[in-house]
């Protein structure tokens, strides 16, 4: 690692002030950023740790949605949403491993926007909102491609708002070495609409499979997708799977998620 100064502010205002330093970068749970630093792929002058900021942590219920602080760990989300939003709890409880879940945060994951991250699929399927220190951004506008988001300089994810569906399920086909999804599909059923968010598959990052959403909107059964397949155009091809294989998995995982959510 290149050397840097690490600061641990206790409030959001102090963190934002510290981030104004040249080449300053926020640090949340560090489960992606620290390995990146070890590989010398990043060279911040100052790392502003957000983990000491109490106001960024915690889960509250507000008007049909969950408001989750950006500094809330995957482990806490898995434990505390088990009753209120089992689909999200299950998703969070399968990220990485128990020790990683005790450090990694939802805000850090969303700011990084790894094309194989799990939360973006849930955010897209539910029509969630990313909350920053400046504004609120709808999931559809927030995710802008691999590792690319609508976040601007000095803007940090302070929380998210995720509408709680009537039923939901996340199916992840794991790449066995990394346990990231080769393809992950989150299906969320609301009164009058269905959302399908797909992660891991596309060169453009997370996306909604709108054709499946439409079909499931009128018939929420796996059979509604029986003759439907996702095109392979624009899907990722690498040593773990071809674009055609990933496209095939999208339909399979979506059907499984619907079956599990029914």
């Amino acid at each position: 690692m290149y050397d840097f100064e690490l600061t641990r502010p206790g409030t959001l205002d102090e963190a934002l002030a510290a981030l104004r330093a040249e080449d300053a970068q926020p640090l949340s749970g560090g489960q992606t950023l620290i390995p990146t630093l070890k590989q010398r792929l990043a060279m911040p002058s100052v790392l502003v740790s957000l983990t000491g900021i109490e106001e960024l942590r915690g889960i509250t219920r507000e008007d049909g949605a969950l408001r989750i602080g950006g500094g809330t760990t995957h482990g806490q989300i898995a434990r505390e949403t088990a009753d209120s939003f089992p689909g999200l709890s299950h998703l969070a409880g399968k990220i990485g491993d128990p020790a990683v879940r005790n450090r990694g945060t939802i805000g850090g994951s969303l700011a990084n926007n790894d094309p194989s991250a799990c939360y973006p699929a849930a955010m897209m399927a539910t029509g969630g909102t990313v909350i920053t220190n400046n504004r609120e951004i709808a999931a559809d506008d927030y995710f802008q491609g691999m590792f690319t988001t609508a976040l601007e300089e000095d803007e940090i994810v302070t929380g998210v708002r995720i509408p709680v569906p009537q039923s939901s399920n996340y199916q992840k086909f794991e790449q066995p070495a990394s346990r990231f999804p080769l393809v992950g599909v989150f299906v969320a059923r609301f009164d009058g609409r269905v959302g399908v968010g797909v992660t891991g598959a596309s060169e453009g990052g997370v996306f909604r499979w709108r054709e499946a959403e439409e079909a499931l909107g009128s018939d929420f059964t796996p059979e509604a997708l029986k003759d439907m397949s996702h095109p392979a155009d624009g899907m990722i091809s690498d040593l773990h799977g071809t674009a055609e294989y990933r496209a095939h998995l999208i339909a399979v995982m979506t059907r499984r998620a619907v079956a599990a959510a029914t």
């Binding site: 620290i34 740790s49 020790a99 450090r103």
Partner: peptide, 11 residues
Amino acid sequence: NVKACTMFAAE
């Protein structure tokens, strides 16, 4: 439980 190789001492 955490992985001590992926957490800074200062934290």
